[in-house]
Nucleic acid binder design. Structure first.
Ligand SMILES: [Mn+2]
Ligand SMILES: [Mn+2]
Ligand SMILES: [Zn+2]
Ligand SMILES: [Zn+2]
Lengths: 143, 143
DNA sequence: ATATAAATGATAATCTTTTTCATTTACAGC
DNA sequence: GCTGTAAATGAAAAAGATTATCATTTATAT
């Protein structure tokens, strides 16, 4: 279950950020989409009901939301960065290399591996990135 | 054990690519460095003994080398993409969020998870990205 | 040596992201 | 409801990263 617009907005405020119409709009754009969106795509969506917003504000807002883990960031694919609403539970991504569809999956944990790495290297692990790339069923057929 | 300049060059040829001095130079730059290098950093290094090379050639060469899995690509961090020599064995990366040090580790496989995902989603898995971010021992001390 | 397809580099175009700074605004406190 | 203030915004520009085009050069098979 993904975080709702309302919850994300509340969390923003809780962390001391002001709740501006621009930020609401960015959050709505992300939360109302199933897909993962690039900053440019979010910009386009947001401008529909907020024509004067600057692209800078998109970037600044995304920064904050990622930092607070309210949205999640994907790294793979062409334009490299894109965003979807975060889920309260820890999860990872499966991405179609052809159409870009993203599937969240959960129930897989890397804690043991993290402990092993920490022990063997002395690193203090802060996070990880686990993504699978593949072809979705649709794209396998339409080849 | 990382792939050597010689082996990478040989593999390039084996796949039907011409072995130009520019490509040799890019390979040498990567293979002679412990670090992972951005395209821009590789460009700077290569220009030392090949001043007239174009940045485009760097990008084109990196493309090929990644495709043939002769070098490996990192996604994390500031400029997002950087490259190190590939290792013959499958491995993943542990990256220091402060100084950028990269540690390869192997012996961890995701085949079971890939099968589960394939079964549950119908995706045909093509690859994955697994990276850990943390603080190396050095950077933990010098805080 | 020659022929030829592949590779290169100059140039420009196109994106993406970050900086700077003057103006505006959310909201805490009264 | 006002007011003050720090935070947020947007315009503009700069900086960075990546890709496209195309005439010229070059590696290599024959
Ligand atoms: Mn997700
Ligand atoms: Mn590696
Ligand atoms: Zn697909
Ligand atoms: Zn470090």
């Amino acid at each position: 279950m993904r975080l709702t617009e309302r919850k994300i907005a509340a969390a923003l405020r809780r962390h001391g950020y002001k709740l501006t119409p621009q930020r609401r709009s960015v959050i709505r754009a992300i939360a109302s989409s199933q897909d993962h969106l690039t900053p440019a795509a979010i910009y386009l969506k947001v401008r529909q009901d907020h024509p004067s917003i600057g692209l800078v504000t998109i970037y600044r807002t995304l920064d904050i939301l990622v930092r607070l883990e309210l949205i999640c960031e994907l790294h793979a694919g062409g334009s490299c960065h894109s965003y979807t609403t975060g889920a309260p539970e820890h999860h990872h991504h499966l991405i179609c290399s052809n159409c870009g569809e993203v599937i969240d999956f959960s129930g897989y944990y890397l804690t043991e591996l993290e402990q092993r790495l920490s022990r063997e290297t002395g690193f203090k692990i802060e996070g990880h990135l686990l993504e699978f790339i593949g072809r979705c069923q649709n794209c396998q057929q339409n080849d």
